[in-house]
Design a protein around this nucleic acid. Structure first.
Lengths: 236, 236
DNA sequence: TAGTGTGAAAGCCTTCACAGCG
DNA sequence: CGCTGTGAAGGCTTTCACACTA
């Protein structure tokens, strides 16, 4: 999902399939929880259950990272936490700017899992001059005019867009121009970016619409088991 | 992707592949924009560009819905809007409850694309009694004790969870017990639900971690480091 | 003629099932 | 013996490329 444009034919950045990369954070979260409970080792079966996947998939995923398990025993929790963190690039510090400090931007700024795990909010930016200086999550909101300077000074490579849809493309252009190469977009717009810039989007209404689709299907299925066909109510 | 548990072997609810369903909202948004500009027809090429996909994929997707285009011309915008809306179940009204009215819950309540498109916020719920009665997005926050009554009275089948992680599973259980069969989860937890209940999750920190992975890869590509092994610190 | 609709080909991703190791 | 690691098989998804038609 969501890379810059139509580049990268079969994106697996270094042998690790994209689908696996997308699950590593899930494993990491489950492992972190185990680590906090001082659990020393875990089997693929247990960890898979905690992460909400099946164990064959988990083992296959881990096999792309290397042979980090012990047959007959399982995986060393601490060691795996380290390996996955390293693989994901979380052993280094990633300064992030959040643009658009409405409810959503504020929610993001306050989000704990954000600040932990290597991500540091370098600045909060908003176009509304009236917001400037106000503290959100302990940080002062700064005016969007400062965007370029902040990105350059802090070597920000990741930007989060929580602006209204209408402002998203312009903000994107400015971020990219200033040197940002990864964007997490919460605005309901398709962003266009140059090659080499990654965009991931999170879209609330799309998720809801997908749920509605399945909801409708369930309702249409009626009481009996879905063995045969659905009534086939064709449109006009 | 986010269905209840390990059920549904190859989920395509009625011939429409899951991957296609996930793109229909994208097409719908692009079409709605065209409709507002009173554009009568679009080609697959144009619409695909607006939606951020390629045209072959779009045509294939539409072919699962039926033959709604005109060769040599393109697609009728209004007609497609209607067909996709119907397919997604957006021609009916979906009452939704949002649980957890912090910054994120408030952002969701205020989100425009939410209220439009067939989704109606039936209630905002929070465990904090101090919030009760306060207006958010024009709706009064109600206490979580009212959850069951609200779900039943409004025939709510979709619930949105914006609570802290610790509360998410309990809220889920109560929603499901009361009759909710689709859940959009913003809490960073794996929810367990009975068969037949769909869960989709949106996880901010996961998205960021995926970006960090690619960011790291880009950075590493500039230097040498092709075979990238690390000192091999084996576990105890 | 311009652009849809679609078999066929090619790639991914998941699952299976079991060899092999601690 | 228990559990990992992994070829092989099977499914989905995307892409290709072109017949076909308004």
């Amino acid at each position: 999902m969501a890379t810059g444009r139509s580049h990268r034919p079969a994106t697996r950045s270094r042998g690790i399939p994209e689908a696996t990369v997308a699950r590593l954070p899930l494993y990491l979260r489950a492992l972190t929880a185990l680590s906090e409970r001082s659990v020393p080792t875990v089997s693929s079966e247990e960890l898979a259950a905690a992460a909400g996947v099946n164990s064959a998939k988990l083992r296959k995923d881990f096999s792309y990272l290397g042979s980090y398990g012990t047959r007959g025993v399982g995986y060393d929790v601490e060691y795996l936490v380290y390996q996955i963190s390293r693989e994901l690039g979380l052993t280094q510090d990633w300064p992030v700017v959040i643009v658009g400090i409405g409810n959503l931007g504020a929610a993001l700024a306050n989000y704990g899992g954000f600040a932990s795990r290597g991500f540091r909010v370098a600045a909060l930016l908003d176009a509304d001059a009236a917001l400037a200086g106000r503290l959100v999550a302990g940080l002062p909101v700064r005016h969007i005019d400062e965007l370029e300077a902040i990105v350059v000074d802090n070597q920000v490579s990741i930007g989060v867009i929580a602006t209204p849809a209408g402002a998203a493309q312009e903000v994107t252009d400015r971020l990219v121009n200033a040197g940002v190469t990864s964007i997490l977009n919460f605005a309901p717009t398709v962003l266009s970016v140059p090659d080499g810039v990654d965009v991931r989007k999170v879209d609330l209404s799309i998720e809801l619409q997908i749920l509605a689709f399945h909801e409708q299907r369930k309702a249409g299925e009626g009481r009996q088991e879905p063995d045969g066909d659905v009534p086939a109510v064709m449109p006009a």
